[in-house]
Design a protein around this nucleic acid. Structure first.
Lengths: 355, 355
DNA sequence: GTGAAAGCGCTAACAC
DNA sequence: GTGTTAGCGCTTTCAC
């Protein structure tokens, strides 16, 4: 069992001083070539690696990013982390993950646990509960302590920080426009409660598209779904709910679900009712998750580009961190990641001529 | 912008020494009640939190776990991380994630990045490439440096460490037995190349079940699928491959896929060929992932209990870490997590009477 | 009851 | 060219 190598040990082993060894390892020309080589060979042999904790203490930077997300068992967030990891790794940053399970308290606890010097900055997507309470003091205080935050996806205007978002409203509009272009007239919207920005904005987009095409808005066709777990029971409830809408409105000819689960579930419910997709009914979902891809027929979706958002978020945070090191303070930016429609088999290929 | 509070600042602010403040914060009875209260109030007001990097340096333990996984955008691994997070959090440990993308080199780089004192121990599931090369020196060296490793899922016998695995062979046997109990005779096995333990062992289980029921083994019915990405193209190749088997053996009446993708794909291919599931053909998959749940018909699967495996892995590592702190060295354990069959709609409910 | 000092591993300014 | 010193923030032993 090799003991951990330290400068001190190398120094005493080689009969040199600690600082000589330190400099020699940095190939500092101060040190005689002879000693430099000797030290470097020795260090290499014993696989010396400078202790990162000591470095962090000295440099007052940990080269570690804290990522706070609502949920890790979720294709989108996993993709984002992937993107963050990729960029962080290439810049020699580590990534610490904190999961809030959509809880305000856990969000605070998680952040406090890391705010003690463990990390240089945060990348965060707020929990649902936080959005509901609309209490962002913990974020503001973090920023006050000069710990930069990059918010992604679930960001809020109240907090001045860098943000990476998608244009949910435009994405929603685009999806609905696609359905309208196919000739769909009665489009069901499956969305979240309004306190979730993403649901609210996508709903706005839905209205935008209807308005632009002079289709009257019908509140009946908007289903705002509350919290659902991933139990089989909750899933059944969702199916029930959608089924009821179909009973009232059997002539629905388009569906837009603001997430994958809603869309796939609706797709399945519709097919069980004997509706042909996409002949009788087109379905569009949101997110480039795995469900959409394996659903039958393969689901047309608005892609969210999670990986890319992660990359951008990490890059943005690291840039800011490095600027802070140089005493710079640049204005906060909000970067909007473009979404696009991945056309698969749950929508029609040909576009109906508009009248 | 509040500057970060330190003992030093509190001390000078209150006209006390650093060590007095340190003790006062610990409510050490040495210190006068008066001063204790003064210091505590002050610290509370300024939201003092001891710097964790300094503590790590002093204590030589970071209270951080390094988790090395092949892939994060993967339901099973995400679940495992979830379980790890849960336990780690409750024990005040942080979790650093490193993703290898199934690459041997990235595995080494990731581990080296953390082995510099950033973490107290590892939880790891080996990359495919590592298993293929069967080169585990980086693991052995890590252990030699007294950094404990807990391996999960993709563990290897060559490395002495704690291990959390499932009994893949038994799980495979159980699944096949279920199919046989339904009266299935010609069972297709979709598995991985043999260098992946999980594929190999599940294949053994397949053979076990056949043997136990005196059904001859037919190499033709075992399809060993190589690396497949998640591109639409790779997916098409897989479908093609399965389709061909059906052409040669149209009378296949059972399918066991050693992962979700294989099983769901086979399910879809079979249905496209007009086969009725589960009437004409039963399908069983592996993993409690999301695809199985949303597939039509809902897929019967062997559950992997990823969350539970994460919990156990974290608990095991933390136990060992704490024992090491106390100078204890306990023998390594291998914990086998029981799998069970989640019966859904892709298999028959009633069991055919055995002749 | 309080504080000085050493030390965790490292770097860098400054002596020699 | 090499070594001493101070300091990052904290804990703990030991003087006073």
């Amino acid at each position: 069992m090799k003991p951990k190598m330290t400068l001190k040990k190398i120094a005493s082993e080689l009969g040199l001083s600690i600082s000589t060894v330190s400099k020699a390892l940095k190939d500092n020309k101060d040190i005689s070539k002879e000693n430099r080589e000797k030290v470097q060979a020795f260090a290499k042999f014993y696989n010396y690696r400078p202790n990162s904790v000591a470095l962090s203490l000295k440099n007052k930077r940990t080269k570690t990013i804290g990522v706070i997300i609502p949920e890790i068992v979720h294709h989108y967030f996993a993709k984002v982390i992937s993107g963050i990891e990729e960029v962080a790794n290439s810049k020699e940053y580590n990534v610490i993950i904190g999961v809030t399970n959509e809880s305000y308290n856990k969000e605070i606890i998680n952040m406090e646990m890391l705010i003690d010097g463990s990390i240089d900055g945060f990348i965060i997507s707020l929990s649902k509960e936080t959005l509901q309470k609309a209490d962002y003091t913990h974020l503001q205080e973090t920023i006050n302590q000069s710990i930069p935050i990059v918010m992604f996806d679930r960001a809020v205007d109240e907090i001045p920080s860098d943000k990476i978002i998608i244009d949910d409203r435009e994405a929603g509009r685009m999806a609905i426009q696609k359905l309208i272009d196919e000739g769909r007239k009665k489009i069901l919207l499956l969305t979240t409660k309004d306190y979730l920005n993403i649901g609210r904005l996508r709903t706005e987009g839905y209205k935008d598209a209807l308005a632009a095409n002079r289709i009257p808005f019908d509140e009946d066709l908007v289903v705002r779904i509350g919290e659902l777990g991933d139990s089989d029971e909750d899933q059944r409830i969702l199916e029930e709910r959608i089924n009821k809408v179909f009973e009232l409105h059997p002539d629905i000819d388009g569906i837009f679900g603001v997430n994958e689960i809603y869309a796939v579930t609706a797709l399945n419910v519709a097919r069980l009712r004997g509706l042909d997709v996409p002949e009788a009914l087109s379905v569009i979902g949101f997110s480039d998750g795995i469900l959409s891809k394996y659903a039958r027929p393969h689901l047309t979706t608005v892609s969210q580009h999670g990986f890319q958002m992660g990359e951008i978020a990490a890059q943005t945070l690291i840039n800011r961190l490095e600027q802070m090191d140089n005493g710079l303070e640049t204005p906060y930016t909000t970067q909007v990641v473009k979404t696009d429609l991945i056309i698969r088999d749950s929508t029609l290929n040909q576009v109906v001529q508009k009248k």
